[in-house]
């Protein structure tokens, strides 16, 4: 066995092991502490958990690809909010008045298009200016948030379309629509990253950009495509979430970028790019949601969740380093 394989395996499986530990812990602790009579691993509870994972999870799939690619996107929260506004508001536009419920796919398409365009802007700037994606999307996080506010001032934007709400609350084959969206996006992202030329090139670029350039991969358009992808997914996440809630505040989606990155990093994607897995990201997303629900289940305050997630993130980083360290052979520099 080649060196590093063991720690590699551990890393790949670790997030699922962690999820199992969480399940056991909260089930057992819940027996003693829980105020409700319901078991933690109740089917409805788990289905709800998956549904609640969807908004962050869908974006996290895009973030995984972008981070494997060697970039990062801090603007997803603002994109999420802007797409939500477009979704809800466009249904009230006079030009679509004659469409009836036919406005729903139109509004969805417009929202998704918004996400793609915002992603494309980020990607284009990264490509053409050569400014680091961290800075470009940090700026865009502010800039797109400004657009969100400009749309409707500090007022919330609301529109409830009951057909849309029914659609969003449906549970085909027992799973919520949001859960289906998350699962389908995960499978598609997994197929793209493991089976397609684009996905393999994404790994190559993140791993060794210079080599990819020398091999003739058009890195600029490739990265732009990935930014369009994450923009699309941020918008999709908004479509899934706001179809049901019907109202968006201009501050919605704030700090989403941080939650998403936390999930991706918990899933083991390297910050420097070149390595990571979509499936492990799903694990990271579920692990965080499980923690939130689990702490609530055992009666812990909601504020504890933040504390625990923060500490776990640092602990994961620490363990990862310990697994990879080469002991005394290591150079102290």
């Amino acid at each position: 066995m080649a060196p590093g394989t063991l720690s590699g395996l551990l890393q790949k499986g670790a997030i699922w092991g962690f999820i199992v530990l969480e399940l056991i812990f909260f089930s057992v602790a819940g027996e003693f502490l829980s105020l409700s009579d319901k078991a933690f691993m109740d089917l409805d509870n788990m289905l709800l958990l998956l549904k609640q994972s969807a908004p962050i999870g869908i974006i996290a799939m895009g973030m995984t690809i972008v981070m494997i690619n060697g970039n990062i996107d801090l603007s997803v929260g603002a994109t999420f909010a802007l797409a939500a506004i477009v979704l809800l508001d466009s249904m009230t536009w006079p030009i679509f008045a004659g469409l009836g419920d036919g406005v729903i796919p139109v509004a969805m398409a417009l929202a998704l298009l918004t996400g793609i365009v915002l992603g494309a802007i980020n990607g284009f700037i990264v490509w053409k200016t050569g400014v680091d994606a961290f800075i470009v999307t940090l700026g865009a996080m502010l800039g797109y948030r400004g657009l969100v506010f400009m749309y409707n001032g500090e007022q919330p934007t609301s529109h409830l379309n009951w057909t849309l709400v029914d659609l969003a609350e449906a549970q085909p084959l027992g799973l919520h629509v949001a859960t289906w969206a998350l699962l389908i996006v995960t499978v598609l992202a997994w197929l793209v990253m493991t089976r397609t030329v684009h996905g393999r090139n994404a790994y190559a670029i993140g791993d060794n950009r210079e080599a990819a350039v020398n091999a003739g991969i058009r890195v600029g358009p490739h990265m732009m495509l990935n930014f369009m992808g994450i923009g699309f997914l941020a918008a999709l996440s908004a479509v899934v979430f706001y179809s049901e809630s019907g109202s968006v505040n201009p501050n919605d989606g704030e700090l989403y970028e941080l939650w998403v990155i936390t999930a991706v990093v918990l899933g083991g994607t390297k910050l420097t790019g070149g390595a990571g897995s979509v499936i492990s990201t799903l694990g990271g997303v579920i692990a965080i949601q499980l923690l939130r629900k689990g702490l609530g289940h055992i009666g812990a305050d909601t504020e504890t969740v933040n504390l625990v997630i923060g500490l776990i993130l640092i602990a994961v980083l620490f363990l990862d380093r310990q697994l990879n360290i080469k002991g005394k052979e290591a150079l102290k520099a």
């Binding site: 990093v265 305050d301 933040n306 500490l311 993130l313 640092i314 380093r321």
Partner: peptide, 27 residues
């Protein structure tokens, strides 16, 4: 001293300190 990635450490601390603040103030 532990040479952990600063982006992730401070991201984690962002969340952890927020939790600490909420605990301190009782929300």
């Amino acid at each position: 001293y532990l040479r952990l990635n600063s982006l992730i450490v401070t991201l984690g601390m962002l969340s952890a300190i927020h939790g600490l603040t909420l605990t301190w103030s009782g929300g």
